[in-house]
Simulated assay, not measured.
Amino acid sequence: MLRTLAGVSQKIVSRVLNNEQYVSAEVRRRVLAAGSRLRVHGRREGHGSRPDLLTAR
């Protein structure tokens, strides 16, 4: 969902979230803005799609 809102690939989202280089300032801004919009609406990428690894033992 984040990559769709930002209009970028999953790899670009990963680079932005891991603070890697090779991402333009404009693309970084779009990804972070899309992330803010998702948090405002209470959504998190992948939330509920897999069990909590710490409590699933």
Rank of each mutant, 00 (worst) to 15 (best):
M1P: 05
M1F: 01
M1S: 07
L2Y: 01
L2R: 03
R3T: 15
R3V: 14
T4S: 04
L5N: 08
L5K: 06
G7C: 05
G7W: 00
V8F: 08
V8Y: 07
V8A: 10
S9Y: 10
S9A: 09
Q10V: 10
K11F: 00
K11C: 01
S14Q: 12
R15V: 01
R15D: 14
N19E: 15
E20T: 00
Q21I: 00
Q21S: 13
Y22V: 00
V23I: 13
S24Y: 05
A25T: 04
A25Y: 03
A25I: 03
E26P: 05
E26R: 11
R29W: 10
R29Y: 14
R30F: 10
R30A: 15
R30K: 15
V31G: 10
L32E: 14
L32W: 04
A33G: 09
A33R: 13
A33S: 13
A33H: 14
A33M: 12
A34H: 01
A34T: 04
S36R: 11
S36G: 08
S36D: 07
R37M: 08
L38Q: 04
R39C: 00
V40A: 09
G42W: 09
R43Q: 12
E45N: 03
H47T: 00
H47Y: 06
G48Y: 01
G48N: 01
S49W: 08
S49T: 10
S49E: 07
R50G: 04
P51L: 09
P51W: 02
L53H: 09
L53Q: 12
L54E: 13
L54C: 12
L54D: 14
T55Q: 15
A56Y: 04
A56C: 09
R57E: 14
R57T: 08
R57Q: 14
